[in-house]
Write a protein that binds this DNA or RNA. Structure first.
Length: 580
RNA sequence: UGGGGCGUGGUGAAGCGGUAACACAGCGGACUUUGGAUCCGCCAUACGGAGGUUCGAAUCCUCCCGCCCCAGCCA
């Protein structure tokens, strides 16, 4: 699958771009950008934005996309984030080539633009305190009042701004403000701050500057400087668009990009704000930004998600302006769909139950052929050892099988995948607990490979592992991070963290698997037959001792049947007469 | 309450005046050496509500209701 491989359904942004190209606006050029602030790790919501921005550029002949770090606030940003963001985007499959930019590279130009605004009488240095500015701003329903500094002379403004830059003033003592309209119903237009003093070292410009432009001033001008044609961002910036346009208009720049807003991604059973994710990391609810339960790109990668699946997901969710919560089942569907075709099948027993095959010769070992992927015969076969004692899944045996239970039970016959039919002849239980600890079975030598020539019907097929040859390994089972589809659905004033799923991680340390898995490379993905897709953890695996992360379980229709049966038996019996 | 947005099935989402795509989920069934996959079928007389315009409205108009965003020298 390539990045631009399918006809995307039209969305309102692509419609705008297509119409612009058709009308030869911007000489038919399409230049987009993804502008992260390096203050955290990228998550799947950012992947949506990347796919939209970069995807649109890729879909248009000659289209270009930029990666620009919006690094205008030194107190929150860090070089570590820059590196993680770059590697995450590369991993997703996008190459920005030479188009890597930083807003901080434009600080000089931005300063000049600010000076021009002052000279044009469109900006002034305001010496009100933060609190005073807030007070003068008014409220949602009341207009603001002009700052007493609004009428400073050009000369004084120029002098003060120059001295702000020179470091003569303390943080917070002055700001540069746009002179717009303190009575505007749009609060963003009530003389917004353009520059603030911050005596802080910047991760790239170091100590060259002690005044930094705000988002509103830097963003539109950075877009303009880079010749961006379509500046695509999320809905919360809609209120900022008039300011975006005001600044570019007043400065009379050649390039005036069009800002277009779309709804950010929300996923059920997780949170998607950098602040909240940071909180989970810092307070130890997860092991880090790359914890496999996190919706971060690095978390999904470690979990075992593929870039293809994530891109496909971003395509399928669509682009619109209504706030919504996408069902995480769609993401899970995307990874299953991808891995179904590509992941080699392998057998692993998560909760082992010992099975002795009484009539199988002691000491004998057979090498059986197993298909690596029935979806793709080209992936070949492998040999797996079979012997007298094997492990099967505890769930695959029931002493008193319910209806439609097609697995092993006393007297029942099942197929061991790729091996033989076996029939359970004896159940051994722990005398104290009554728990089933071992099964004795008999096999049919005539069913080697799992076939019988007499047309016998065997509905159940179990996965298994030869006890004497098994690799013992750790498996980590992940579930949704939160117990509620909407984690913010909490009682009174309590925190979203009260909805954290206490069972989102289950570590199994004595799983038994095919010996061949001892050499599984970190990052490689497998389907554990009948269970799910798993990925070798790239952090905790050791040579010969892989640790497996469950990416996603296989769909389980037996679980549904069983649940339905439980519902049936527990629901109160209502007399028929009451129904009519 | 001022301003800006948004409201289509369980969840996303097409539709742009001509009689509700698609996907996920769900539910049936076929097939099956993964109760996986695959395949078939079902799933909005209905588009937040009420009026109006029109031969005809989810699409146009009016009013109402609900949800989201904005009072950082965050982005």
């Amino acid at each position: 699958m390539t990045i631009v491989d399918s006809i995307r359904p039209p969305d309102f942004i692509r419609n705008i771009v297509r119409e612009d190209v058709r009308a030869n606006k911007n000489d038919g050029r399409v230049v987009t950008r993804f502008p992260p602030e390096p203050n955290g790790y990228l998550h799947i919501g950012h992947a949506k934005s990347i796919c939209i921005n970069f995807g649109i550029a890729l879909e248009n002949e000659g289209g270009i996309y930029h990666l620009r770090f919006d690094d205008t606030n030194p107190s929150k940003e860090d070089i570590e984030y820059i590196e993680s963001i770059k590697s995450d985007i590369r991993w997703l499959g996008f190459d920005w080539g030479k188009h890597l930019y930083y807003a901080s590279d434009y600080f000089g130009k931005l300063y000049q633009y600010a000076v021009q605004l002052i000279k044009d009488g469109k900006a002034y240095v305001c010496s009100l305190s933060t609190e005073e500015i807030r007070g003068y701003r008014g409220t949602l329903t009341e207009p603001g009042k002009n700052s007493p500094y609004r009428t400073r002379s050009l000369e004084e403004n120029l002098d003060l701004f120059e001295r702000m830059r020179a470091g003569e003033f303390e943080d917070g003592s002055h700001v540069l403000r746009a002179k717009i309209d303190m009575t505007s119903p749009n609060l963003n237009m009530r003389d917004p701050v353009l520059y603030r003093i911050r005596h802080e070292s910047h991760h790239r410009t170091h100590d060259k500057w002690c005044i930094y432009p705000t988002y509103d001033f830097a963003h539109c001008l950075s877009d303009s400087i880079e010749g961006i044609t379509h500046s695509i961002c999320t809905l919360e910036f809609e209120n900022n668009r008039p300011l975006y346009d005001w600044i570019l208009n007043e400065l009379n720049v050649d390039c005036h990009p069009q800002q277009i807003e779309f709804a950010r991604l929300n996923l059920s059973y997780t949170v998607m704000s950098k602040r909240k994710l940071l909180e989970l990391v810092e307070q130890g609810y997860v092991s880090g930004w790359d914890d496999p339960r996190m919706p971060t790109i690095s978390g999904l990668r470690r979990r075992g998600y593929t870039p293809e699946a994530i891109r496909n997901f971003c395509e399928r969710i669509g682009v619109a302006k209504s706030n919504s919560i996408v069902d995480i089942a769609l993401l899970e569907h995307c990874i299953r769909e991808d891995l179904n075709l590509r992941a080699p099948r392998v057998m692993a027993v998560l909760y082992p139950l010992r099975v002795v095959i009484d009539n199988y010769p002691e000491g004998r070992v057979e090498e059986l052929d197993a298909q690596n992927n029935p979806e793709d015969p080209g992936m070949g076969t492998r040999k797996i050892p079979f012997s007298r004692v094997v492990y099967i899944e505890q769930d695959d045996f029931r002493e008193n099988p319910p209806k439609k239970f097609f697995r092993l039970a006393p007297g029942c016959e099942v197929r061991l995948k790729h091996a033989y039919y076996i029939k359970c002849v004896r159940v051994i239980k722990d005398e104290g607990t009554g728990k089933v600890i071992e099964l004795h079975c008999r096999y049919d030598p005539a069913t080697r490979g799992g076939w019988s020539s007499d047309g016998r019907k065997v509905r159940g097929t179990l996965h298994w592992v030869s006890a004497a040859h098994a690799l013992e390994a750790e498996v980590r089972l992940y579930d949704h991070l939160f117990i509620k589809a909407n984690p913010y659905d909490v009682k009174d004033g309590s925190d979203f963290k009260t909805n954290l799923n206490p069972n989102s991680l289950e570590k199994l340390t004595s799983c038994r698997m095919e010996p061949g898995l001892a050499g599984a490379r970190p990052g490689s993905r497998y389907q554990f037959l009948r269970q799910g897709y798993f990925c070798v953890d790239s952090v905790d695996s050791r040579e010969g001792a892989p640790v497996f992360n469950r990416i996603v379980p296989l769909r389980d229709s037996w679980a549904k049947i069983e649940k339905a049966q439980e519902r049936g038996s527990f629901s109160p019996t209502i007399p028929r007469s009451l129904h009519s």
